[in-house]
Nucleic acid binder design. Structure first.
Lengths: 272, 272
DNA sequence: ACCTGTGAAGATTTTCACAGCA
DNA sequence: TGCTGTGAAAATCTTCACAGGT
C-alpha cells in the first residue's frame, strides 16, 4: 500500500454520499482511500493559497501531493468537478469546495483522554485548534494530573468524560492512555456520544458499529519500516549517496517522488 | 479503507519476496496490506504469550485482531503455513516465525530529528526499545536543546546527522520537526544512509525511490474522522447510549468489532 | 467434528487513454 | 494545444467456500 506516502488509511464517505464498501449505498460512493487523499489535497491547497498561487493543474497538484494526476482528477470528481479544461483548478475555490465536501465547515471540539507522555504533547500542540479541531477537554485518572491546566484547559477526572463531553459538544475523542486503560476510556467516550475516535493505544478497540475508530500505532509503523529495511538488505546494497529528487516547481513546492503503493495514511500535524 | 482498525497503511514485502505492486517481482509477493496486518498479529500474539495461551484458532485470533478469519489465514499463508488443521496455531512458534518473517530479528537503532513538543514525547517514551527499536540518536537545531539529555541520550545538532547516524548504525529515522524543516531533516537522514523514515511533519517528503517513507499526520486523521461525523449527521441521529460489543473470550481478550474498510494504518505505541 | 490452506469469485482501487471543452 | 472528466481495463485486496489434514 503506497499512495502519496504510506501511513494509516481508510476513511468514510462524504456528504449525502457513502463510502465504498461498508453500509447500504445511497447517493454516490466515495472510496475511503479517496477521502483520506482529499484531506491531503486540502492541506496542500492551503499552502498554495498562502503562497498566492491561483491555479494549478492536476499534474502540478499531483506532483506536490505525491500521487498520480489521473487519480487526483478522479478523486476530485467524486466530490464534483470544478476544474477548468485547458487551465487547471482554481486553488481558492477548490479549497473551499473540499472543505465543505469533507464536512469541515464547523469546528469539531476534541477531547483527549490520557495526559501522559504523548497526551501532554498532543494537548500542548496548538495546531489542532487552527485546523478546526480545538482540544476542548482533557482527562486522566492520575490525581497529580487532575486539576492542572494545559494551554488553559483543566484536566478532569476520566469519570467525568460522559458529562463533560456532552456539555462541550465533543464530537471526536483521542485516546492516549496506556494500553490497559484504552478500552475503558473508549467506552466512556462512546457513552458520551462520541462517534469518532483516534486511538494511540496499541489495542484493538471494541466499539458499536456506528463508531468510527482510526488507529495510530507507532510500533506497527516501525515494524513495517523494519520489514522494508530487511528486504533491502536481502536485495543488495544501494548505490548512490542519494537524493534523486528532481526539483520541479509550482512556486517552490517540491513535487513528490514515486506515487505509492499503500492506500491511505498520511502525514502528521504535531510538529516540533 | 478499513481493515482491523483504520489508520495509515501500505507496507513493503518480506524476505526474498516482494510487495505487490512496486518493483520487479521475484519470489512471492506479499501484499502491503498484509505486512501491516502481520505487525498487528505479532503484537496480539505477544499478549497471548504473556497470558500463557498456547494455541489459538484463526477465528479466535481474527476476532481479537479485528479482522476476518479467512483474511488472517491468507495473510499468514504468505509467510508460510504453520497452523495445525483441526487445532489452530501455536502461539509461541507463530510469534517467532512472524518476527523473522518481518525482519525483526535484529535491533533497529532509531534516530529522532526534532525534539519539540512531540519529539520530546517520542524520545521519552520507553516502549520503542522494548520492541527492538532503541532510540539511539536525537537531533535538533535549537541551541537550548542541543546538549541536553533525554533518557540518557544527548541531543546533538542536526548537522551531525550524517556522521552520527552512520556511527550508530541507524536504520530508521523519525522526523518530528516543524513542517518547514522536515525536508531538510529528511535529506540529511538520507545522506546518512537511512532508508526508512517515519514522518510526523505535515509535508510530503521528496526522497530517492529506494527510501521508504511512512507518514503519520494527525490533522489528516482528524479530518477523516470529521468527515465521518458529518456523514452521520446527515444520516440521522443515533439511537442507543451505546456499547454493543459482544464479549467473546480467548482468555479475557475482547474480540474486535466490525472488520474495517480502510487498508493499512494501525495502532499506536506511545501511550501515557 | 474442527480448522487450516487456498483457488476462484467478488469488491475496490488505480491506471489507461481519450473524448471533449476552453 | 492544454488539461479536465471518465468509461473501461488492469491491478489489488477481500471474502467465499471447500478440499484436505488431524
Amino acid at each position: 500500500m503506497t499512495s502519496p506516502q504510506a501511513g494509516p488509511e481508510g476513511a468514510p464517505a462524504l456528504g449525502a454520499s457513502r463510502v465504498t464498501g461498508t453500509g447500504r449505498a445511497r447517493t454516490r460512493a466515495v472510496p475511503q482511500a479517496t477521502v483520506a487523499r482529499l484531506a491531503v489535497y486540502l492541506r496542500i491547497l492551503g499552502e498554495l493559497v498562502e503562497r498566492g498561487t491561483e491555479t494549478a493543474s492536476s499534474d502540478e497538484l499531483a506532483a506536490v501531493c505525491g500521487v498520480n494526476s489521473a487519480m487526483l482528477r478522479k478523486d476530485l470528481s467524486y466530490v464534483g468537478s470544478h476544474g477548468i479544461r485547458g487551465v487547471g483548478y482554481e486553488v481558492g475555490p477548490l479549497l473551499r469546495h473540499l472543505e465543505s465536501a469533507l464536512g469541515l465547515t464547523h469546528r469539531q471540539p476534541v477531547a483527549l483522554v490520557g495526559i501522559g507522555n504523548l497526551g501532554h504533547a498532543l494537548a500542548g500542540y496548538g495546531g489542532f485548534g487552527g485546523r478546526g479541531f480545538p482540544v476542548t477537554a482533557l482527562f486522566d485518572v492520575d490525581p497529580d494530573l487532575v486539576g492542572i491546566k494545559i494551554n488553559g484547559i483543566v484536566v478532569e477526572h476520566a469519570r467525568d468524560i460522559p458529562q463533560t463531553c456532552r456539555e462541550r459538544d465533543v464530537t471526536i475523542g483521542m485516546i492516549a492512555t496506556p494500553a490497559p486503560a484504552a478500552q475503558g476510556a473508549c467506552d466512556l467516550l462512546v457513552r458520551a456520544g462520541v462517534s469518532s475516535i483516534l486511538n494511540f493505544a496499541p489495542v484493538v478497540l471494541q466499539v458499536p458499529e456506528q463508531v468510527e475508530v482510526r488507529k495510530v500505532d507507532l510500533a506497527v509503523e516501525l515494524q513495517i519500516l523494519a520489514f522494508h529495511v530487511a528486504r533491502r538488505h536481502l536485495a543488495g546494497s544501494d548505490l548512490s549517496g542519494h537524493d534523486g529528487s528532481a526539483q520541479h516547481s509550482l512556486r517552490g513546492v517540491r513535487p513528490a517522488p514515486d506515487p505509492g503503493r499503500d492506500t491511505v495514511n498520511r502525514h502528521a500535524v504535531v510538529t516540533s
